[in-house]
């Protein structure tokens, strides 16, 4: 597998939009050609080589190309946007929209990521080892469907609107979430291993959500159905006792959404 190593060297005083950094774009290009690719900084376009040193040639196809970003790029947005195959490893933190609408391949972020990772993602794997902010795998503004396939794994915490409008695929959060996790969820699976602040699974009409920790403020439109033990969704296992709720009955619908809440951590419910 061919590896292209990008090292940040440029002036990132204003944020940079680098949707061109994908294995699809780098495949079949030499290091010099990759350096010629244009990326955006505010109203101007500049060569990739002005911001990154480029080492190594792209592979013959996207599947055959790995891109390693060797450093922190918190002010670089849209890395891996619309990628279909191959691999991107970011050895630090990254900016907004990482893996936006990606359809395949793999992105690993070793640090943190800003808002909108995996927006409307269709396939592949996005693994963020640190924390992230808002709108993980969420729908774009005004759109009814968030991610439809693939998997997002966040080892740390996420903030608001995780999996907004999710229709398919899985989101697994190792840490905690804040508000509106799973808002308007209509399919797919969200697993939060830590705590949630409030409005969990609000307006959900389908899909499954699991909260392993404590929910500070429970959504009022849910009804308890049963208590179940040790949940299993393909390769994802959630051990312990869970209360099973259906809803969200705040929205006129048939209550096809399922919310599992850890019994042990939420006895007051």
């Amino acid at each position: 597998m061919a590896e292209v190593i990008l090292k940040p060297i440029g002036n990132f005083d204003l944020t940079v939009e680098a949707e061109a950094i994908t294995p699809d774009n780098f495949a079949g290009k030499t290091a010099v050609e990759i350096g010629e690719i244009l990326i955006w900084q505010a109203p101007a376009q500049a060569k990739l080589s002005e911001f990154f040193s480029v080492e190594g040639n792209g592979g013959s196809s996207a599947e055959d190309t790995t891109i390693t970003i060797d450093g922190d790029v918190p002010r670089v947005k849209r890395i891996g946007q619309e990628m279909t195959a191959g691999k991107i490893i970011i050895k630090g933190s990254t900016g907004m929209h990482v893996g936006n609408t990606m359809a395949g391949g793999e992105i690993i972020v070793e640090g943190n990521a800003e808002s909108w990772p995996g927006m409307e993602m269709k396939g592949g794997l996005l693994h963020i080892k640190g924390d992230t902010l808002d709108h993980v795998g969420c729908a774009y503004r005004g759109s009814w469907h968030g991610m439809t396939g693939g998997r997002i794994v966040i080892d740390g915490n996420a903030k608001n609107q995780v999996g907004g409008g999710i229709s398919g695929g899985e989101i697994i959060i190792g840490g905690n979430v804040d508000n509106f996790c799973g808002i308007r969820m209509n399919g797919g699976l969200i697993v939060v291993k830590g705590n949630a602040v409030r409005t969990t699974a609000a307006e959900m009409t389908g899909g499954v959500m699991v909260v392993g920790g404590r929910i500070e403020k429970f959504s009022p439109g849910f009804e308890m159905e049963a208590v179940e033990c040790d949940l299993k969704f393909d390769d994802i296992e959630c051990a312990g006792e869970f209360m099973k709720f259906t809803g969200d009955y705040a929205i006129p619908q048939k209550g096809k959404g399922t919310l599992y809440v850890s019994y042990e951590n939420n006895e007051c419910l």
């Binding site: 959504s219 009022p220 439109g221 009955y249």
Partner: peptide
């Protein structure tokens, strides 16, 4: 910061369902 919960509970009532009792405390 509980406007959403109140609206959601009102909406649940309008839909003929009983809101979760925790909403009173919230």
């Amino acid at each position: 910061n509980t406007d959403y919960e109140l609206l959601s509970a009102l909406f649940t009532i309008l839909n003929g369902k009983e809101p979760h009792p925790s909403v009173e405390e919230i």
